[in-house]
Every structure is written in C-alpha cells, then in structure tokens.
C-alpha cells in the first residue's frame, strides 16, 4: 500500500527513528542519500577485505612453521568471508555483487589505501595483524552500532572473528622482538614502514572529509576520524612498549591533562597519492583481482550452465 504522507514528513520520521537509536532495515523507507552513502561505504569495505587478502596472501607459501602457515591461511580466509558478509549486506540495498565487483575491477570503486603497500618480510605479517587489523577493529566496533541493520550485524560478526587476527599478529611481533638480533631488526623495520600508513586508515581529519557530517547525523558513523585515530594510538603505544618496539614518531609523548598520547604530523599527500592510484602496489593488486576474475569466468559460466541444464527453479 503506497505511503501517502509527503517526503518531508517521511524524512522527519526517519531521522526521529535514527535519533531514537532504532535500526533501519532493508524494506524501510530511507532517503536516497542514505541508501547511496551506505552502498558506497559498504561496498568499499567489502572491496577492502578482498584486496586485503593479497598482501598477507603473499606470505602463505613462505610461512616459517606449520602453525604459522595454518594461522595465516585461516586469517586470510576470514577476510574472504568478511568481504562476503559485506557484499551481502550491500545487496540488501538493491545493488548486486557482480555490479560491485565490476566497479572495483574497472577502477571505479575505492578500497582502503593500506592494502596498496607491499609485504616485504615475514615480520610485515605480524605488524599487519597488530596495526591494520587493530585499526580495523576500532572502526568496526563503531560500525557494529551503526543505524543500518544488515551493516551493523555484518560488523558484529566481523568483530567477533577479527579479535584472533590482531592477537595472532601481535604474538608474531612479540616472538620476533624476543628472538635473534636479525628477527628483532626485521620486526622494527616492518613497524617503521607500516605505522604511518596505519594511522592514515582512519581517514583525513573530518574538516577535510566531505561526507562526515551527514554520516554522523544518520549514525552511519558514530565518531569522527580523529577520535578513532586517537583511540588507536592510545591503545597501541603501551602494546609497542611491552614488546620493546619503538614507534617511528619522535613527537610521540603522553599528555597528562588530556590522558592521550600526542603524536606527530601525518603526511596526507602520501595518502592522496596512494588513493589516486600511485601507491607502491595499486597496479599489482588490481591486476591480481582482474586476472582471478577473468580466469574464473569460464568456471562461473560452467556452474551456471550446469544449473540451467539440471536444476529446475525452486527445487
């Protein structure tokens, strides 16, 4: 039955629901901007998980013990699963997974810039679990409370699984930093390369973030980029100290009045270059995804052809 109230009234009711902390579900009325923002955010999040499999996947075949091999495989597999949950959440908004994947492969969709950096040593695997998953957990813990039901539930499931990822990474770093001299140097070198890009994961300061105000009003985001980044720094500094790792920021100091760790300036020009496509591995990441997709096309076609031949709809 069509809703006879006008658009202005619908928007007012919608925003009241959000303010009251209600979840919006797929068939509920929502402003087109809300739908579009969510499609953009959720698909970007999904793409990030899938592309994120590649830098860590790079070390699966060289993992130095069977336990580490199994642990890394399970972690990368979880990332595939997370991408899958997120694509499904986006599909509730009326887009299909094929369309989202094609947008990624054509370079029209974004994914988290962090996955355009190379993994150069085994220590990178530990540091990624610690920093990158650590930052993702901060973000996803917030998103688990967002206003859109399917996205909130996907993030809840992701958060439960992500905890083991961060612990695994930190355990690797801890083992390295209490190991041989070469291992300690390997760990410190990886930290030096991944620290600043990890801080950039939270995005530029909100003043330069065009979408922030709307996302906050509609509880798609619940905290500012800077708040989340500060929280991440605050929890990570003591973790680094506990494993005798030095964070590569001479300006890092504890401010007793605010209770926060103050840190140095982020070079946002590096972030924008990487987003634009000029990071160290952008081309390699996209080539890997395009190759997998094109080499897999005949497989997907075969599965479809078999289903058409043998399975009648609804049986």
């Amino acid at each position: 039955m069509p809703d006879l109230i006008n658009a202005e009234e619908q928007l007012k009711r919608f925003e009241m629901r959000i303010a009251a902390g209600e979840k919006i579900e797929p068939k509920d009325w929502m402003p087109d901007r809300y739908r579009q923002q969510l499609i953009r955010m959720i698909s970007q999040h999904a793409h990030s998980e899938i592309v994120g499999m590649l830098p860590e996947g790079n070390w699966i075949t060289r993992a130095p013990t069977l336990r580490r091999k199994i642990g890394l495989l399970a972690k990368v597999q979880d990332e595939a699963g997370h991408g899958l949950y997120l694509y499904c959440a986006a599909e509730t908004l009326g887009v299909d997974r094929r369309g989202m994947i094609e947008a990624l492969l054509e370079g029209k969709a974004k994914y988290s810039h962090i996955f355009n950096y190379p993994t150069l040593t085994w220590a990178d695997i530990g540091v990624i679990g610690w920093f990158v998953d650590g930052a993702a957990i901060v973000n996803q813990t917030m998103l688990a409370k967002c206003s859109y039901g399917p996205y909130s539930r996907a993030n809840l499931r992701i958060c439960k699984e992500e905890n083991f990822h961060k612990r695994q990474g930190y355990e690797i770093v801890s083992t390295l930093s209490s190991g041989t001299l070469k291992q300690r140097e390997m760990a410190q070198d990886a930290v030096n390369r991944w620290w600043w890009p990890s801080l950039m994961m939270f995005g530029p300061p909100d003043a330069s973030s065009p979408n922030s105000a709307e996302l906050l009003r509609w509880k798609i985001k619940l905290h500012s980029n800077d708040e989340l980044r500060q929280h991440f720094v605050d929890i990570t500094v003591p973790q680094a100290a506990a494993v005798s790792i030095t964070l590569p920021d001479p300006k890092l100091r504890f401010d007793t009045s605010s209770g926060h760790w103050m840190f140095g300036e982020i070079d946002w020009s590096e972030f924008y270059e990487v987003i634009k496509g000029n990071g160290p591995c952008n081309k390699e990441r996209m080539k890997a995804r395009r190759d997998a997709d094109s080499e897999g096309a005949w497989v997907r076609d075969a599965a479809h052809a078999y289903a058409e031949k043998h399975v009648s709809a609804g049986t």
């Binding site: 068939k27 887009v95 299909d96 997974r97 094929r98 994947i101 997907r300 289903a307």
Partner: peptide, 12 residues
C-alpha cells in the same frame, strides 16, 4: 530484499 532473479551469471 534485493531482486535476485535478474541475470546474475557472474556470481550465481
């Protein structure tokens, strides 16, 4: 729920 009946040979 999204209309999953449309042509979707790519992903099933």
């Amino acid at each position: 729920m999204a209309d999953s009946r449309k042509e979707n040979t790519g992903e099933g």
